[in-house]
Write a protein that binds this DNA or RNA. Structure first.
Length: 603
RNA sequence: GAUCUCGUAGCUCAAUUGGAUAGAGCAACUGCCUUCUAAGCAGUAGGUUAUGGGUUCGAUUCCCGUCGGGAUCACCA
């Protein structure tokens, strides 16, 4: 039997439907689902859809199909019918043989070319994520973005696709000028080094300071009887900031060098945070280098009639046909708006990477409208890759106290968060008292990995599309559906393998062992790996991987509790269980790696 | 105001895309360490899936209404 039997089974069922009921169904359209735990069987066919043409009751239809499969070449052990559900069991040996196969050759489990069906083809994809502003440090929202972007990229790679991970840094604009101006006026030449501050926090401090000073000026003017609007426009800082932006766009050397200096401070800070988060990029785009590219596309669009120019010189697109409205693409003074830049970068990327099929933007759902517009723009421009633009729109992160608001100081800083969660992991590990040396570099690494395991799993187990609640107290939990629980299970398996590894026989020596329900369940769970990866890639959802690896860890712990691995009653049983344990550990570490989590050999 | 989106156990999340008796964890309660890591395992309790209708063999899932939360609708980014 083929190591993946589904397509063979589907073909058999399809020909069954044809010969029994003259019903023509595509084999690939037949849906098989895993049999629920409380029933006997491996896969289940729901026959309701076929009862109309069969003219028989659901039970009779299921029975007839079951008998047809039984009589066919398909290696069926048995089947049973419950209402309209046909539960099929494949030959008993199948699962043991499967374990032997993947144990001998891991690529049979992990290589998408060997686990996916014939019509699978790898794609060339690009994932944009992170995309920070260079005026303030990263916060919890960015953390979700970064973890998600990194994990989604890994899921797609694990599914066999070629993935380019990119970051688009928003390094220009009036918000950047604010921190620059504040530093010039009030900084007294201090630097991150002189103040022992992380560069991004240092610059962020001046961004906040600008806002504070500016508000004070506005209030002062209002006291003198000036209206609010007037005050906001005429406040000295506001005038200066406009001037600074103008100078920046004109390429004034002094402004540019200040800008470069401060951005570099921020980049140093970001690099540190990215490193702690364990995320990386193949390529970094800077808006300052791409924001002009969109203008050319806009001129072409005007020429081709996709866009239109108003009398004042501003350029618009009419998207009413697509259910959207009119959208400005270029200001009347000829300067670009936000979307101009995104148009330029998209074009640039498809030019730079020929054959790119999809450009996946990991961006919060507050920008749903923006990305709808972007896609429509390229449809109007008749770019053949327009449909390849995909907005992976994730939900906002809330706190128990409500929404994060920088104005109210309720923003959770990424660096603080990481520091705290790692400290919690350290305390918890010390309380367990299992490590001999708590101060070694390995111990430090363990605390970091465990803390990040908690944080990453906590965030990634939630469906990306959904808004989620971040409860700091809960995120450091170590029990139950958590990263540390899965890490623990891995460490436990590794410990077993260290003890019994020497007793492992050749993989094909254990097939005589008649596996228990716990063992069979575990093998079936491992078997699901490639199915889950495929589903996770299709849905751009690392949450499916998180859910799966948790179920796998639970299945192992259940098995572990019921059976002794090392020194079982017979040598071949020990060997069987060692192979089973090892394959479980490999799948766990693979899934966790996809989530960006490093699992420990001991803890 | 218009458009989009969400509402599942006390809390945080699932539910194989329309399938079986809606599942996990946390919190609560009860058992299990003289065997390979108890950050574990097993059990008890907890639900009118916001609400009212509709579609059908079958609805947490699809459609309509209502209530409630969130987002977006700038020559901001």
């Amino acid at each position: 039997m083929n190591i993946r039997f589904e397509s063979q089974l589907k073909n058999t069922i399809a020909s069954g439907l044809k010969s029994l009921y003259q019903l023509n169904v595509e084999a690939s359209s037949i849906i098989l689902q895993e049999t629920k735990k409380e029933f006997e069987g491996d896969v289940t066919l729901v026959v309701f859809p076929y009862t109309k043409t069969s003219g028989k009751s659901p039970e009779q239809t299921a029975q007839a199909i079951g008998e047809f499969v039984s009589a066919s070449d398909f290696p069926l052990e048995s089947f049973n019918v419950v209402k309209g559900f046909l539960n099929l069991s494949v030959k008993k040996e199948f699962w043991k043989n499967y374990l032997a196969t993947i144990s001998n050759d891991h690529s049979q489990l992990f290589d998408p070319k060997k686990t996916s069906d014939e019509n699978f083809k790898p794609s060339k994809l690009m994932v944009e994520y992170s995309s920070p502003n260079t005026n303030k440090p990263l916060h919890l929202g960015h953390v979700r973005n970064n973890l998600l972007g990194f994990a989604v990229s890994n899921v797609l790679k694990a599914c066999g696709h070629e993935v380019v991970m990119v970051n688009l840094v928003n390094d220009r604009g009036i918000h950047i000028c604010k921190s620059m101006l504040a530093w010039l006026k009030f900084g007294n030449g201090e630097t991150p080094a002189s103040t022992h501050m992380k560069g991004d926090h240092f610059v962020g401090k001046y961004y906040v300071l600008y806002d504070k000073k500016y508000k004070a000026q506005v209030e002062e003017l209002e006291k003198d009887g000036v209206t609010k609007e007037e005050a906001e426009r005429t406040a000295p800082l506001h005038v200066e900031i406009q001037e600074m932006l103008r100078k920046w766009e004109a390429g004034d050397p002094e402004t540019k060098s200040l800008w470069e200096k401060m951005n570099n401070w921020v980049y140093e800070g970001f690099a540190e945070t990215y490193k702690k988060l364990g995320v990386s990029f193949d390529k970094i785009y800077y808006e300052s280098k791409t924001y002009l590219l969109g203008k050319e596309i806009i001129q072409d669009g005007v020429a081709s009639g996709a866009f239109f120019k108003k009398e004042d010189g501003s350029v618009w697109i009419d998207l009413t046909e697509a259910g959207l409205d009119m959208k400005v693409l270029l200001r009347s003074d000829g300067t670009s708006v936000y979307i101009t830049q995104d148009m330029g970068t998209a074009q640039l990327r498809f030019d730079e990477y020929p054959g790119l099929e999809k450009l996946i933007y990991v961006v919060g759902n507050e920008q749903d409208y923006h990305f709808k517009v972007l896609k429509e723009i390229f449809r109007k421009l008749k770019r053949n890759w327009a449909d390849g633009l995909y907005h992976l729109s994730y939900g906002m992160v809330d706190l128990p106290s409500g929404k994060m608001k920088s104005r109210e100081g309720t923003v959770v800083d990424a660096d603080d968060l990481i520091k705290e969660i790692v400290e919690e992991a350290e305390m918890a590990t010390k309380a367990q008292g299992k490590l001999d040396d708590f101060n070694s570099p390995e111990a430090k690494e363990l605390y970091h990995n465990l803390g990040m395991s908690a944080l990453k799993y906590y965030i990634l187990k939630v469906d990306p599309k959904k808004r989620m609640l971040f409860n700091p107290a809960e995120s450091i939990d170590l029990n139950g559906n958590t990263g540390p629980f899965i890490s623990y299970t891995y460490a436990r398996i590794r410990s077993v393998l260290r003890k019994g590894g020497a007793m492992k026989l050749e993989a094909d020596k254990f097939v005589s062992h008649d596996s228990s329900p716990e063992e069979k369940l575990l093998i079936k769970q491992i078997y699901q790996y490639s199915v889950v990866i495929k589903a996770a890639a299709d849905a751009y959802s690392p949450a499916l991987v998180a859910q799966y690896v948790y179920d796998l860890a639970k299945a192992y712990n259940h098995f572990y509790h019921e059976h002794i691995v090392v020194d079982a009653e017979q040598k071949d049983i020990t060997s069987f269980r060692l192979h089973l344990s090892e394959m479980t550990s490999l799948v766990i570490s693979k899934c966790m790696a996809i989530l960006g989590i490093t699992v420990p050999e001991r803890m």
